[in-house]
């Protein structure tokens, strides 16, 4: 299991039109991610971190190159197949949380399971477990507008984790959080990574995140300039 390749990109290029010119967000990225990774894509703003994350998540398509996620070439998937890939294998957390505003915390976390057509009893058990992981059992009936930034991010993580996906793609998960909340969330993710074997890929330039990574991929101007295994920091496993 340790060596199973979940994601592979080959000569990935992404251009965005910018006026009359093209902006190159990704430039010839060839990279693989294995199961149980806890990897960060780091680099300055505009280096291509989020773009790479979105393409891996089949939320965006590359201009050139190949992306395989769970053995499937995302470039050849129909909308329905891409939706199914995201629904079954991928969990997302966004910088701006993107919680569904009219749903309660419970309903937000439950939503991915509804798409998987899970049985009600099983669904309830999974939602409560996810809420327990993120410490929001007492906020089940709250709406997103009643939550703090840290709580919203924890709901977002619970929603990504509730279906026990193979891969969680997290875009700047700590960007809007204070230090204490950031550490709490990262420790929780580490716990999930280790207990459930979930692969985490972050896009972040937050030093607090970088300190927790097992692998750090540095991007600059759309290119991988460094791909390094990290030493586990002191207390890395302390949850």
């Amino acid at each position: 299991m340790e060596d199973q390749i979940l994601i592979a990109t080959e000569r990935l290029v992404k251009h965005y039109p910018m006026g009359k010119h093209l902006f190159t967000a990704l430039n010839d990225i060839t990279i693989t991610f294995k199961s149980r990774e806890f990897t960060g894509l780091v680099g300055p703003s505009g280096s291509g971190k989020t773009t790479l994350l979105n393409i891996i998540g089949a939320l965006d398509s590359p201009t050139r190159g190949l992306v395989r996620v769970m053995g499937q070439d995302t470039g050849t998937l129909s909308h329905k197949q891409a939706a199914r890939l995201r629904s079954i294998y991928l969990g997302f957390t966004f910088q701006t949380y993107n919680l569904l505003p009219v749903y309660t915390v419970y309903e937000n976390v439950e939503f991915p399971l509804l798409l998987l057509d899970m049985a009600p009893a099983q669904r309830k058990k999974a939602v409560l477990q996810a809420l327990e992981w993120v410490g929001l059992m007492d906020k089940q009936k709250s709406r997103p507008s009643q939550l703090s930034g840290g709580e919203s991010q924890r709901v977002s993580i619970a929603r990504a984790m509730v279906k026990a996906p193979k891969i969680v793609l997290a875009d700047e998960p700590t960007a809007n959080l204070d230090a204490a909340n950031s550490h709490n969330i990262l420790q929780m993710m580490i716990k999930l990574n280790e207990e459930l074997g979930t692969t985490f890929i972050f896009a972040s330039h937050d030093d607090k995140v970088i300190g927790y990574l097992k692998r750090k991929i540095t991007l600059t101007d759309g290119k991988v300039v460094e791909d390094a295994r990290m030493d586990l920091p002191e207390g890395r496993n302390t949850c």
């Binding site: 939320l59 199914r84 629904s87 991928l90 919680l99 991915p112 929603r159």
Partner: peptide, 15 residues
């Protein structure tokens, strides 16, 4: 529309 984007990201088919 952001909500729709979220639904897409969560795996809801377009139809």
């Amino acid at each position: 529309r952001k909500e729709m984007g979220t639904l897409m990201a969560l795996g809801m088919p377009r139809t």
